[in-house]
């Protein structure tokens, strides 16, 4: 029962960026629904949503950067497929960052509860 050179956990590099995007998506959607149901003040609700979106964008940027650093650094010296997984992970993390910008930025400008 030897340990793998590239543990199965490395597979999670691939979905990581989009897992953050999914959590952000669901959180923002839920915050909007809760805000409307509880009748929050519109200005306050928009601030909450923008703050949440910015927080997730920062997280997504950080994740992309770390995976990219890993790909171009440490993964190069590990056995296959560490570099492949890190490369795909970098691509997906960057896609997820772009998807976060694409989904949240236009949305936050429009009406909240109608």
């Amino acid at each position: 029962m030897s340990r793998s050179d590239v543990p199965p956990l490395y597979l999670l590099l691939i979905p990581l960026g989009f897992v953050i995007w999914s959590i952000a998506f669901v959180t923002l959607y839920a915050a909007n629904a809760i805000g409307c149901a509880f009748g929050w003040d519109m200005g306050a609700q928009r601030m909450v949503l923008i703050a949440l979106a910015l927080g997730f964008l920062a997280l997504s940027t950080l994740a992309s950067f770390r995976i990219w650093r890993f790909w171009t650094g440490r993964a190069r010296h590990q056995p296959a497929p560490a570099a492949s997984l890190a490369q795909i992970g970098t691509y997906t993390a960057l896609s997820a960052l772009a998807a976060s910008l694409g989904t949240f930025v236009p949305g936050l400008a429009v009406s909240l509860c109608i």
Binding site: P106, G107, A109, V110, S111, I114
Partner: peptide, 14 residues
């Protein structure tokens, strides 16, 4: 998406 959201916003029952 920007164009469509702009149109959509104007059609809402504000």
């Amino acid at each position: 998406v920007g164009f469509a959201l702009y149109i959509g916003e104007r059609l809402l029952p504000h």
